[in-house]
């Protein structure tokens, strides 16, 4: 019985959100407001148990690593983020987290630029590798705005546009697929878990 009520609540809230398709209404507004609150409220005990206890409480109070008090105090400065006069204090925990971008300087150059360029420079051994080469170069030229896209240069960058259009078409096709898949999931819930029509 309890399970039936639970599934009914989930189905009711699902339908409340779907009701927005007809038009905005109090059921949708209620569900939306509840979702925002529950999502945030849900994170608090989870962070407390999974992050605060093992990384702050245990090291300080059980393992007596008192040095951890410093980063804990640093972290608590986040709370001043919205204060008019003391907002600057929140910069300390923020910069501490941001510093790791230092790693991304060599690492992103490696994975997104160098490895990709290396693969773009393979010997052209067929029509496909030739097309990939032409596409990559013409699009890179298209994004070079220091020279006006006119004359022969304009024609070359135009080729880049065609390649991009095919790329965007592929992305659009997959986006349609993704959205439909999500709806399928919800309808599987309504028909299966709630109404028991599919199993």
């Amino acid at each position: 019985m309890f399970e039936i009520i639970s599934t009914f609540v989930a189905a009711f809230l699902t339908l409340s959100i779907f009701s927005f398709l007809y038009k905005d209404n109090p059921f949708y507004k209620f569900a939306e407001a509840l979702l925002v609150g529950v999502s945030m409220g849900y994170a608090i005990p989870l962070v407390y148990e999974n992050v605060f206890l093992p990384y702050v409480y245990t090291p300080i109070f059980l393992s007596h690593k008192f040095i951890i008090i410093i980063p804990a105090l640093l972290g608590s400065l986040y709370m001043f983020r919205f204060s008019k006069n003391l907002g600057w204090l929140a910069r300390y925990p923020i910069v501490f987290g941001m510093a790791i971008v230092g790693m991304s300087v060599p690492m992103s150059i490696h994975s997104s630029v160098l490895v990709q360029m290396r693969s773009a420079m393979l010997p052209i051994d067929g029509i496909n590798t030739a097309l990939i080469f032409i596409g990559t170069v013409t699009i890179l030229l298209y994004f070079f705005f220091s020279k006006a896209h006119k004359g022969i240069y304009g024609k070359v960058t135009n080729v880049g546009i065609w390649f991009m259009m095919i790329g965007f078409g592929a992305s659009f096709g997959y986006t349609v697929m993704a959205r439909v898949s999500l709806l399928i999931g919800r309808i599987q819930f309504l028909l299966g878990d709630w109404l028991g029509l599919v199993r």
Partner: peptide, 11 residues
């Protein structure tokens, strides 16, 4: 990945 990300990951 969800299908939205598929085309971007081909490289």
């Amino acid at each position: 990945v969800t299908a939205v990300m598929v085309a971007d990951n081909y490289p």
